[in-house]
């Protein structure tokens, strides 16, 4: 156990030092590009994917609503924060608007969980996708609250210790800190009584119910937790993009989050970040690999190959290789 904690701390330190390493080996503008556009973006996507991986790994729920829930946090932030264009409600500082966004996404998570509470597996997949697309179309057509197709711009983010939030280094470390806290939080939560009940529901809901636990409430609460996680990603993503538009939560974005989680593997929360990193790197360098405009074909093929060959993704592949290696040694 202690070894694993040390290993995890070492890995975290390595990731935290990445910007320095990149600055040392790459020209300045490239290092900054990697820090902001690849690592920073991968962390933001990874947080949203983490909310899905959390639900899938410990609850067995594959929810396609997570990007939409992240978008709810982003939209709530954009609607209430001062300085956003156009001004919808405004008047709040970031210190108040960000918690409001997280509250909104948690509530949306609870709502999605409540609507889907009696469904499982592919039914859940269908219903969460339908809900996500419903919110997307609502946001896209509603001008009064969400400025329709154009969305809300100029959400620049707060100042952190006197530095601009969107400074690549500041953004990277805030995102990294958030991701690490959420990851540790998830790993802690699944060892708590709540987490154990959740895993019991995944394996056999009837038995858990017979033990006297309220299955429905636990399920809804898990969606609430996932909603909070997704909301963190949504807030960061909105500040990263200096605003939010319906495209952020469209079908493509929804499916992208699923792709990341599946590529990384729906067996361990770390898979979310692994998947988002692979996705972002492909996204950035698709032009060099195949064709600039055909990124979707490329990532779709990667996704298909993973689903066909290794359904538990890269983390599953890694643990299988490890088992193979240790098996040979014995």
């Amino acid at each position: 156990m202690r070894e694993r904690v040390l290993l995890a701390l070492g890995a975290f330190a390595l990731v935290a030092l990445l910007p320095f390493l990149l600055a040392a080996i790459l020209p300045a503008n490239q290092a900054q590009f990697w820090t902001a556009n690849i690592l920073g973006r991968a962390l933001v996507f990874g947080i949203v994917a983490l909310s899905l991986t959390f639900l899938a790994t410990y609850g067995g729920f594959i929810s396609l609503a997570q990007m939409m829930i992240a978008g709810v946090a982003g939209y709530a932030l954009a609607v209430f924060v001062e300085g956003a264009v156009p001004r919808v409600v405004g008047g709040l500082g970031y210190l108040a608007a960000i918690p409001l966004g997280l509250l909104a996404s948690t509530l949306m998570g609870l709502l999605v969980g409540a609507i889907a509470v009696r469904t499982r597996d592919i039914y859940l997949l269908m219903i969460t996708l339908a809900l996500a697309m419903g919110v997307f179309r609502f946001v896209e057509t509603n001008i009064a609250w969400f400025n329709g197709y154009e969305g809300i711009r100029n959400v620049v983010g707060p100042n952190v210790f006197g530095r601009d939030f969107r400074d690549p280094w500041v953004f990277f470390y805030v995102a990294l800190g958030t991701a690490a806290l959420l990851l540790v939080g998830v790993l802690y939560l699944v060892r708590s009584p709540f987490g154990l009940v959740l895993q019991g529901i995944r394996d056999n809901p009837r038995r858990v119910a017979a033990l006297g636990y309220n299955v429905a409430l636990h399920r809804i609460a898990a969606f609430g937790v996932a909603g909070f996680i997704a909301g963190c990603g949504g807030v960061l993503g909105t500040i990263y993009n200096i605003g939010i538009s319906p495209g952020t939560i469209g079908l493509g974005a929804t499916v992208n989050v699923l792709i990341m989680s599946v590529i990384g593997g729906l067996g361990h929360p770390l898979g979310a970040f692994l998947g988002s990193l692979v996705f972002t790197v492909f996204d950035t360098f698709a032009a060099n690999l195949y064709d600039r405009d055909r990124f979707n074909t490329l990532i779709g093929t990667v996704f298909l190959v993973i689903v066909l060959l290794s359904p538990d993704g890269l983390t599953g592949l890694a643990s299988r290789l490890r088992r193979l290696a240790t098996g040979r040694r014995e």
């Binding site: 594959i62 597996d121 499916v255 979707n296 779709g300 093929t301 689903v307 066909l308 359904p311």
Partner: peptide, 22 residues
């Protein structure tokens, strides 16, 4: 394997939409 089949068809839909666009 219902869930896996659903995921496969999602992969197909991404590729088909992109190739039709191309």
């Amino acid at each position: 394997q219902e869930l896996r089949q659903a995921l496969v068809t999602i992969g197909v839909s991404i590729i088909v939409a992109d190739q039709i666009l191309a």
